[in-house]
C-alpha cells in the first residue's frame, strides 16, 4: 500500500514560489511563473474548535447549496418514479420533499471532512470512519437501489438502453420509451440536455462541460496543502499527536494508523479523539480554511469572466428548481 507521493513534490514546488506577504494580483498579461508566484491575499483566520458549519469556502458561491443539491436529487428520483409507474414498474418512494433538517444534507457539505476529522462528537462514535446515516424510520423506503437489481425490462425503461440491440429502446408494451429512458426524462425535466452519442456509441448525458468550478476547487486544495502556513500548522499538529504517542506527519493520513474494520475499534476512536483535540489546539482547520479561501479568492478573481457566466446559470437553475419544487407534490 503506497501513500500519495505526488504531494511531496507539489509541496516543494509551491513552497518555493508562494510568498507569505500580501500579494498583488497580476493581470491577464502576466506569464505563468508570475501568476504562480503571486501569493493570494490572506483572509482572516477563524478559530475552529470542532465545527465548520457556518463557514463557506468562496467557491461555494458558484455551487448549489447542500439543500438545493438534495432537492434536485429528490426531484430526479420523483420524476423517475412517476415515469416508471406509467410503464407499470414500481420504484422506491423518495419520501417527502427535503428540508433544511434533512440528514442527507450533511453528506453534501463541502467542508465537513475536507480537512479530515474535526468534530469531537462524531469521532467519539465513529473514530476515523465516515459517519453512517441513522437507520431509516420504520416503514420508510429502503436503501440503495442498484440498476442491476431491477428486472431487465425495468432497467431498459429506466435507462432507455436495450442491451439486446445495443441501442436505444423503442417501445415497451406498445408505449414509447423516452429518450435515455425515465432517467433521461427526469433529467430533461430539470433542464439538462441529455442527447448526444459519441462515435463509439456511448450514450452521453452531460450536465456541464465546463468543469471550471470543479477544477478551481481541486487546485485550491492542492495549493493550500503545500502552502507554508498549512505546512507549519501540520507540524504543530504532528508534535501534539507525538506527545500522545501517535507518530504521523500528515493529518490526512492519520486513518492509516489503523487497518480497515467494519466498525471503529476503541483504539481508533481514542486516536481520532486525540487528533480532533490537537486540531482544535493548533487551529489546523481554521488556518487551512483561511489559506484555501485565499487561494480560491485569487483564482475566482482570475476567472471572473467565466465565473460570472457560471453564476448567471446557477441563479437560473435555482429559480427553475424552486419552481419545479412548487409544482411537484410533496
Amino acid at each position: 500500500m503506497t501513500r500519495p507521493s505526488r504531494l511531496s513534490a507539489t509541496r516543494g514546488a509551491f513552497g518555493a514560489v508562494v510568498a507569505l506577504a500580501l500579494a498583488t494580483l497580476t493581470g491577464c498579461g502576466a506569464d505563468a511563473a508570475t501568476r504562480a508566484a503571486a501569493a493570494p491575499a490572506p483572509v482572516s483566520t477563524p478559530q475552529v474548535t470542532g465545527d465548520l458549519t457556518g463557514l463557506h469556502l468562496p467557491i461555494e458561491s458558484y455551487m448549489l447549496t447542500p439543500l438545493e443539491t438534495v432537492q434536485r436529487q429528490w426531484l430526479t428520483q420523483a420524476g423517475i418514479r412517476s415515469c416508471l409507474a406509467r410503464f407499470g414498474f414500481a420504484y422506491p418512494d423518495p419520501g417527502p420533499r427535503p428540508t433544511a433538517d434533512s440528514p442527507a444534507l450533511a453528506a453534501e457539505s463541502l467542508l465537513a471532512r475536507r480537512y479530515g476529522v474535526i468534530d469531537p462528537g462524531l469521532v467519539r462514535r465513529w473514530g476515523y470512519h465516515a459517519p453512517q446515516q441513522d437507520a431509516p424510520p420504520k416503514g420508510a423506503a429502503g436503501g440503495m437501489v442498484l440498476l442491476a437489481d431491477l428486472s431487465a425490462p425495468e432497467q431498459v425503461v429506466l435507462t432507455g438502453y436495450d442491451p439486446a440491440t445495443r441501442g436505444p429502446a423503442g417501445t415497451y408494451k406498445g408505449t414509447a420509451v423516452p429518450a435515455q429512458g425515465c432517467r433521461g426524462e427526469a433529467d430533461r425535466a430539470l433542464g439538462e440536455q441529455t442527447d448526444g452519442t459519441t462515435a463509439g456509441g456511448r450514450q452521453r448525458a452531460v450536465n456541464s462541460v465546463d468543469g471550471l468550478v470543479e477544477q478551481l476547487k481541486a487546485a485550491s486544495f492542492t495549493a493550500s496543502m503545500a502552502d507554508p502556513r498549512v505546512v507549519a500548522v501540520f507540524r504543530s499538529w504532528s508534535s501534539c499527536m507525538a506527545r500522545a504517542g501517535y507518530r504521523e506527519t500528515n493529518p490526512m493520513l492519520a486513518p492509516e494508523l489503523f487497518p480497515p474494520t467494519p466498525t471503529p475499534t476503541k483504539a481508533e476512536i481514542s486516536a481520532a479523539e486525540t487528533d480532533v483535540a490537537c486540531k482544535a489546539r493548533t487551529n489546523l482547520a481554521g488556518v487551512w480554511f483561511a489559506v484555501e479561501s485565499a487561494y480560491q479568492n485569487a483564482a475566482i478573481a482570475q476567472h471572473a469572466g467565466e465565473l460570472a457566466e457560471v453564476k448567471a446559470s446557477l441563479t437560473g437553475e435555482v429559480t427553475d428548481l424552486h419552481a419545479r419544487l412548487a409544482r411537484t407534490p410533496a
Binding site: 438502453y161 452521453r204 450536465n207 468543469g211 457566466e309 457560471v310 446559470s313 446557477l314
Partner: peptide, 17 residues
Amino acid sequence: VLAGEAGATSTNIDSWS
C-alpha cells in the same frame, strides 16, 4: 457531447451514462 448549462452541476464529474 452537448454543452449543458455551465452551472452548479459542474461540481460533479458526470460525463456519460
